[in-house]
Each structure stands twice: as structure tokens, then as C-alpha cells.
């Protein structure tokens, strides 16, 4: 997966980038699965490998296929990135070990979901109960986000082509 990511950085063919981001997403989904997040894997598969890639390809078809390789100074981004990374590494030093059942996150809120959701809410899939019931309001927000994106795309690229033509004329 890391290799994919590095490959993505260096490839300049945007098509290859789109393909690789599909692969990246697939491997992320496998990782989710290994970490027991079946629902997330499901979504990532549908979204990352499906919708995002297809949209990205559509964009490529509408724009251009190659990145111009620019040889400007990459020092500043590198410094920022390393600083951020160092901060995170610094943070990992105090993190509970991977998979530790005694970690704080597994003790406070989550316990109730696991123990009671079957009785209080019903569905055997705890993720569904939490998503739809305990944190149903988040999901409402999520739906609104998708709604926003859709009407945003409608507003930006909707069918009426007039504004775009006008702009082209302006440029001419």
C-alpha cells in the first residue's frame, strides 16, 4: 500500500494515477476488513474503487491526461510534511499498543454499544444500530453532505451551458 502511494506521487500520467488510486482504495478496503471493519470495507470498495475512480476518469476525459512535471522547489512542503509526521510519531510514543483490549477507547462508550445495542435497538449489526440510532444525527448530517455535493455539482456543471460559453467569449 505504501508502495502504491509512493508510486502515485511520482507518476505523472494522470490516468495511471487514477488507476493506482483505485488500487490504493482496494488495498485500504482489504486493510479495513482485516481490522474487522466490514461495513467500512464495503463502503470503501463501493466508493473508492467505484465512484471516485469513475468520477476521476470522467474528469480526466474532460480535462487533460498528463501532469506537467514542474521542477520547482519542493523543500518547503517537505519541511511541513516532515514536521507534521514528526509530531504524529511523537504522539505514537504514548499510544496504547495496537489491538490492546485495555485501551481507553474500548472501555468508555463502546462497551455499551456492544453489550446493549442488541437489546435496546435490535439489529445484530452493531454498526447499523450505532449509525442509525445512537448517532443517527451524524448520519442525517452525512446525508445532507451528500445532498450538498450533488446540488453543488448541479450548480457548478449543470446542464445549461450558457455561462460557460459566455466565459469562453470573454476570454477570446
Amino acid at each position: 500500500m505504501a508502495i502504491t502511494a509512493f508510486g502515485l506521487v511520482y507518476l505523472s500520467s494522470l490516468f495511471a494515477v487514477a488507476m493506482l488510486s483505485g488500487i490504493f482504495s482496494l488495498s485500504a478496503a482489504s486493510l479495513y476488513l482485516v481490522m474487522d471493519a466490514v461495513d467500512v470495507a464495503f463502503t470503501e470498495a463501493a466508493v473508492g474503487a467505484g465512484i471516485s475512480t469513475v468520477l476521476m476518469l470522467g474528469t480526466l476525459a474532460l480535462t487533460t491526461r498528463r501532469e506537467k512535471t514542474s521542477k520547482d522547489n519542493k523543500a518547503l512542503p517537505l519541511v511541513i510534511v516532515s514536521a507534521t509526521g514528526a509530531l504524529l510519531i511523537y504522539a505514537t510514543l504514548d499510544m496504547p499498543p495496537y489491538g490492546d483490549p485495555a485501551a481507553p477507547i474500548n472501555h468508555h462508550v463502546a462497551v455499551r454499544y456492544i453489550e446493549k445495542s442488541g437489546i435496546e435497538v435490535g439489529p445484530p449489526n452493531i454498526v447499523t444500530s450505532v449509525l442509525a440510532s445512537y448517532r443517527g444525527y451524524d448520519t442525517l448530517g452525512e446525508v445532507t453532505v451528500i445532498f450538498t455535493a450533488a446540488i453543488g455539482v448541479m450548480a457548478l456543471m449543470g446542464r445549461s451551458r450558457k455561462p460557460r460559453r459566455k466565459q469562453k467569449k470573454d476570454r477570446a
Binding site: V109, S133, Y134, R135, Y137, D138
Partner: peptide, 11 residues
């Protein structure tokens, strides 16, 4: 509280 769940569990 939202959704009928008390604070740390619900929103």
C-alpha cells in the same frame, strides 16, 4: 439529547 440516548452514547 438527540435520538433518545443519553449524552456520551448519543449526540
Amino acid at each position: 439529547r438527540i435520538g433518545g440516548w443519553d449524552a456520551p452514547w448519543g449526540i
